[in-house]
Structure formats: structure tokens, C-alpha cells
Amino acid sequence: MPRDTALAEMDALSDDALLLLYGRGDAEAARLLTARHLGRVYGFAARLLGDRAEAEDVAQEAMLRLWRAAGVWRAGEAQLSSWLYRVTVNLCTDRQRSRARRRAEALDDVAEPADDRADTEAALLSRERADALQSALATLPDRQRQAVVLRHIEGLSNPEIAAILEVGVEAVESLTARGKRALTAALAGRKAALGL
């Protein structure tokens, strides 16, 4: 079977199936899982930590834990993406607890676009808005920030977030509501500057 065809067939497999293949020694399965999940894990960690270098460390560690869990992974028991979110939340929480102080100066770095598209007016405005939101997110308590990012940026449902944060659905609703109120207050003075 041609390599491209084989890869295309592998890419159609579920996360569980790919992890099973990896557990049996197929490194190609790890490449596909990395392509599927690393961006999400890294982006999420960057939102929570506000620091690219730390987010890279967390993302690498989260994926390493996935590789190590492959041998004991039980298909169907947990959704792989949710499992990775939970591991990432815990790793970020550990880092935030160990910080002597919040490194606010790194926040601007996080929101820099990774691509080299032309700085059109719309692109600049989009980046300014993303920067402003990231700065406001950094002022939230950790749990509120985690819930808001999972709900409104990652697009997860409240029950999914509840499972990841290991709290009840009502607690998630409360965290996101309080988080949004705090963001609104933090950004109130910038409405006009952000073209809203």
C-alpha cells in the first residue's frame, strides 16, 4: 500500500485507535495525534499562563504524559481531548502556584500572531482585541480564567468543562458568569479603542 494511502487511512482513525497503534509501537500514530492535539493543548496553556515558553513546556509535558499513558489507555473511557485539557489545567495550576509573581510583561508576547500575514487594518484590530482580552483574562482568578477560556475560546460545553475541572456543572456556570462580569469590568474603558 502506498505510504500516502496508508497515512490517509490512519488519519481517518479515532484518537483511541491511534493511541492503541502507538502503544503497539507505531510512531506514525504519534505524529498524527500530535498534529491533532498539540495546537489545542499549547494554545490553551498559553491562554492560562500568558507565557509562550512556559506554555511550550506544559504542552510538551502534557503530550509526554499521553505517550506514557498509551500502554494503559482504556478506549472509550475518556475522551482524549478532555483528558489532555485536564492534564494541561493541572500542569498550569502547578506552575501558577509556584510562581513568585505573575509575569504580566509576557502577556503581550502570547497574543502575537504566529503567521506572517500582512498587517491589514482588520488584522491589527483583531490582534488588539485579542491582546486586550488576554490582558483582562490574566486578572481573573485561576479557576474563573480556566472556565472562561474553556467555554468561550475552546468552545466546550458546561458538562465537559465540569469533567475537566472536576467540579459540578453549576460551579462551572458560576465561574463563567463571574469571569465574564470581571472581564466586562476590566475592559469597560477600552470599548471605543477596540472599535466595539
Binding site: Y22, A27, A30, R31, T34, A35, L38, G39, Y42, G43, A46, R47, R52, A55, E56, A59, Q60, M63, L64, W67, V110, A111, E112, P113, A114, D115, L125, S126, R127, R129, A130, A132, L133, Q134, H152, I153, G155, K180, L183, T184, L187, K191, L194, L196
Partner: peptide
């Protein structure tokens, strides 16, 4: 307004570098 900011954040999502991807795959191997 806040939804507009969330949309901008999604559009400007930080993306992993090629070096990070390489490290992760190296870890897997």
C-alpha cells in the same frame, strides 16, 4: 462586545512552533 473579543482571541490563537512539534514527536519515539 465580549463575544467579539472571544472571536478575536480564537482567530489569534497561539500556534505551536515546528520545534515544539519536533520535540513532542521525539518524546513519543
Amino acid at each position: 462586545d465580549l463575544d467579539g473579543l472571544f472571536a478575536a482571541a480564537r482567530a489569534e490563537a497561539p500556534r505551536p512552533s515546528a520545534a515544539l512539534s519536533a520535540r513532542v514527536i521525539s518524546d513519543a519515539e
